[in-house]
Write a protein that binds this DNA or RNA. Structure first.
Length: 428
RNA sequence: GUGGAUGUAGCUCAAUUGGCAGAGCGCUGCACUGUGACUGCAGUUGUUGCGGGUUCAAGUCCCGUCAUCCACCCCA
């Protein structure tokens, strides 16, 4: 091919097979969301840069957002995440809506960063949030939704785990170690990076942040303390509720989970593949200050976001990707010659009217063999032939590809016979 | 933004110290002019990412560039 125009870096072309996976994921997300009583919504893809300036975190806003000036001079960004949009939408109508709100969404997002495994510049996210309830049970409901989703798409508790921590808990524990309140964000970063560097390097990094040896020991001890959640005001209730939701095998405490975004205030969680071969599948948590930050009255909220990229890679890697090779239409109507083209189109129309999915071959110059090859490659189950003999007798030849079984039936019986073949396969 | 690797047929890849660009799959045709999937036979597939340099000779060495992948940063 001569100089094809390159796609934009980091974008994904969804050919039908990939589109089928994305659509399937969307369907799974819808199913779980609706099972828990959540309503679908959508915000604009374009937002003012100011919306993110307050709370999203410097890196995300300054370096990873697509920003441009529109013709009116407004600084516009392609949305890098949905939560601030959600907060804005809630703030705009919070007096007229009955809290709590249970909302979900699935749509495209953009972040300007170097593409790599599990990270693209354009991607899709499922966002689901519970707004207006500050209880640990609300946190647990979101964890239960996440766990149910993992289960429904085929991941076992051995393959994926939802790791939970609480920022308020960690803040208290860190303050007890004598760490200054102003250093908390940096220490969160330190905790977040423990898995990414060697023990020595991590220690050096901690010293650079100004922690002394006892404090580093203390932080290390916190991160190993699997019983730390008992010190939390909310996590014991959270885990009790998770147990009642029936998903405790997917959810466990992890004191090293802290999350990067600035707006999280309480319980935070991430889902990981237990083998550790991929990035986090999703992340979320409680953000009780955000609606207030974008101009509304304070409303507590909790939610999480799932990207389609890591999820798709992990489904593939663990063999849970469904087979989407099924035919676009299970019935294929061949065309014998120029004279039978219009009757063949009419036959296909009759079958569609009877509720079948039917592909018509349109070129009467193609040999039957070629048409069969094409039908087979598309994954058609049944091929129909309307040749001179059939036309003369008012019949249609019906061939079931898997068995090779073929017979001719009166035209009036074709729809019923084909329907039966599609349901029962080879049975007569 | 930083660092590393890789670009050869539609796809997956091979090509010895620089020495005739290949294989499998696919695709086309025939056996089988009213029938796919299976089998056999025959055929087909190239700006070696792009541009320059070294050399008698470059897929191979050197420089530049573009693209992709991987890691860091950050994060879904």
């Amino acid at each position: 091919m001569a100089n094809p125009i390159q796609p934009v870096k980091g974008t994904t072309d969804y050919y039908p097979e990939e589109m089928a996976l994305r659509a399937w994921l969307y369907g799974q997300m819808r199913q779980v969301s609706e099972a828990f009583g959540y309503q679908e919504y959508e915000g604009p893809m374009l937002e003012r840069l100011d919306l993110y300036a307050a709370k999203s975190g410097e890196e995300l806003v300054e370096k990873q957002s697509y920003v441009f000036e529109d013709r009116g001079g407004e600084r516009i960004t392609l949305r890098p995440e949905l939560t601030p949009t959600l907060a804005r939408m809630v703030a705009a109508r919070q007096r007229q809506m009955a809290l709590p709100l249970r909302w979900w969404s699935f749509g495209p997002f953009w972040r300007y960063e170097r593409p790599q495994k599990g990270r693209t510049r354009e991607f899709f996210q499922w966002n689901i949030d519970l707004i207006g309830d500050d209880s640990p049970e609300a946190d647990a409901e979101l964890a239960a939704i996440a766990a149910t989703f993992l289960k429904n798409v085929g991941f076992s508790p051995n393959e994926t785990q939802i790791l939970v921590n609480n920022r308020a808990l960690m803040q208290d524990e860190l303050l007890n170690l004598g760490i200054a309140k102003g250093d908390l964000a940096a220490v969160y970063g330190l905790i977040d990076r423990r898995d990414k560097m060697t023990a020595d390097k991590w220690r050096d990094y901690g010293e650079e942040l100004g922690l002394d040896a006892p404090q580093l020991e203390g932080v290390t001890a916190l991160m190993k303390n699997q019983d730390l959640w008992k010190n939390s005001a909310v996590l014991p209730r959270f885990f009790e509720a998770v147990d009642s939701f029936g998903v405790s095998d997917y959810v466990r405490f992890a004191p090293n989970i802290i999350r990067g975004l600035d707006y999280y205030t309480g319980t935070v969680f991430e889902a990981w593949d237990t083998a550790g071969d991929f990035r986090a599948i999703f992340g979320g948590g409680r953000y009780d200050d955000l609606v207030n930050a974008v101009g509304g009255d304070p409303v507590p909220a909790v939610g999480f976001a799932v990207g389609n990229v890591v999820l798709s890679l992990l489904l593939e890697a663990l063999g849970h990707r469904p087979d989407f090779s099924a035919s676009p239409a299970p019935v294929y109507v061949t065309v014998f010659d120029g004279d039978s083209l219009l009757p063949a189109l009419k036959l296909a129309a009759e079958l569609r009217a009877a509720g079948l999915k039917v592909t018509s071959h349109l070129d009467p110059n193609d040999k039957l063999g070629k048409q069969f090859t094409h039908a087979d490659r598309l994954g058609a189950k049944v091929v129909l032939i309307l040749g001179p003999d059939e036309l003369k007798n008012g019949e249609v030849a019906i061939k079931h590809l898997a068995s090779g079984d073929q017979r001719s039936l009166p035209r009036s019986e074709v729809a019923e016979r084909v329907s039966k073949l599609l349901v029962h396969g080879e049975s007569k």
